[in-house]
């Protein structure tokens, strides 16, 4: 009885055995947690690694030029050497021997098309689209596409989209990058440097073939008289059909606005001609007929499209989506 009373006096003190036991248990638990990675990786931690993968993939594609190399030489023009690819990147590079580009976000058409041809295993390995679990690589599901105005972009009649269909029941991570996509070639003229043989008619010589549709942009036309307008386009004397042979727009910055032919001062107009028109490979005479437009530079010789043409870039979105 006296022993029990003594115990009551010492209330609140825990047993040494319990303390020792719980300490040992906690130490053991801590070591287990620390030395077995992945044991406590929850859904959110998994998502974050997807975040990194999507971000990294998009960044590499947009900002890197890629690299190829074999025992003798190397360069950034990997699209020309698909067997010795070392890195895949889509940024334009004007100097393939330097490892840098000063044009991030400018996407090369040829590199993009070659990306579509790279076989699946190499692509996943190059882009790091996998996760190592116990030394076994598991590929992520991925979908990489270029989009413009909500639609998948087309180059060389190919939709630029790689990977699998995005599952709508599974959590995925998406990164969007804004890029300038090389869509073909463009020649820009002002009213003063367009050559003309017939009144009101601008004549441009075009030599095909072309890989993409060609764009002719005209600014600063000298308008005379009332209601000046664009009448029609003809190739080698044959009048072309609007919509099927060519489309035309009024440009306001990057915005394409519908153009019905009537001109007002300060307009920048743009024509997209179907590449098939020039598939013969010979020099063709393209006439653009206007009403009440004065073209002060006489021809022949006529301006050549091919001498004036430069790569044509349009804003597009690169969308990378990755899931487990």
């Amino acid at each position: 009885m006296a022993y029990i009373l003594e115990m009551i006096d010492e209330k609140g003190q825990i047993a040494v055995d319990f303390l020792l036991g719980i300490s040992l248990f906690l130490i053991a638990l801590t070591f287990t947690v620390q030395f077995i990675p992945g044991m406590f990786i929850s859904g959110s931690a998994g998502e974050s690694s997807l975040d990194y993968t999507a971000y990294r993939t998009a960044t590499v594609l947009v900002e890197d030029t890629g690299w190829w190399g074999n025992s003798t030489s190397s360069g950034t023009d990997w699209e020309e050497h698909p067997v010795s690819i070392m890195r895949i990147g889509l940024a334009v590079d004007d100097d393939p021997s330097s490892k840098l580009t000063n044009t991030p976000n400018l996407i090369s058409r040829n590199k993009t098309l070659e990306m579509m041809n790279v076989d699946e295993k190499t692509f996943i390995e190059m882009m790091g689209l996998y996760n190592n679990v116990d030394d076994t690589p598991f590929s992520y599901g991925y979908n990489i596409s270029f989009k413009q105005n909500g639609n998948v972009l087309m180059l060389n009649n190919t939709s630029i989209v790689r990977g699998q269909i995005i599952p709508n029941y599974q959590e995925s991570t998406k990164i969007t990058r804004i890029v300038l996509m090389e869509k073909g070639t463009i020649a820009s003229f002002t009213g003063d440097n367009l050559t003309s043989e017939l009144a009101n008619t601008a004549t441009i010589n075009v030599t095909g073939p072309f890989e993409e549709n060609i764009t002719i942009r005209i600014s600063d036309l000298n308008l005379t008289g009332s209601s000046p307008m664009f009448l029609n386009a003809s190739l080698e004397g044959t009048t072309l059909t609007r919509a099927s042979n060519y489309t035309m727009w009024k440009m306001d910055g990057w915005d394409k606005e519908p153009f019905n032919g009537s001109l007002s001062s300060g307009d920048i107009i743009s024509f997209d001609f179907d590449k098939e028109l020039f598939s013969t490979g010979t020099e063709c005479r393209l006439d653009l007929e206007f009403i009440n437009v004065s073209l002060p530079t006489p021809g022949p010789p006529f301006t050549k499209y091919n001498n004036e043409s430069a790569p044509y870039y349009e804003p597009a979105y690169l969308v990378v989506e990755v899931w487990q």
């Binding site: 300038l180 942009r217 910055g253």
Partner: peptide
Amino acid sequence: VMDRNPVDSA
């Protein structure tokens, strides 16, 4: 993209 846009662009 604004910065890298070619000079002859619209």
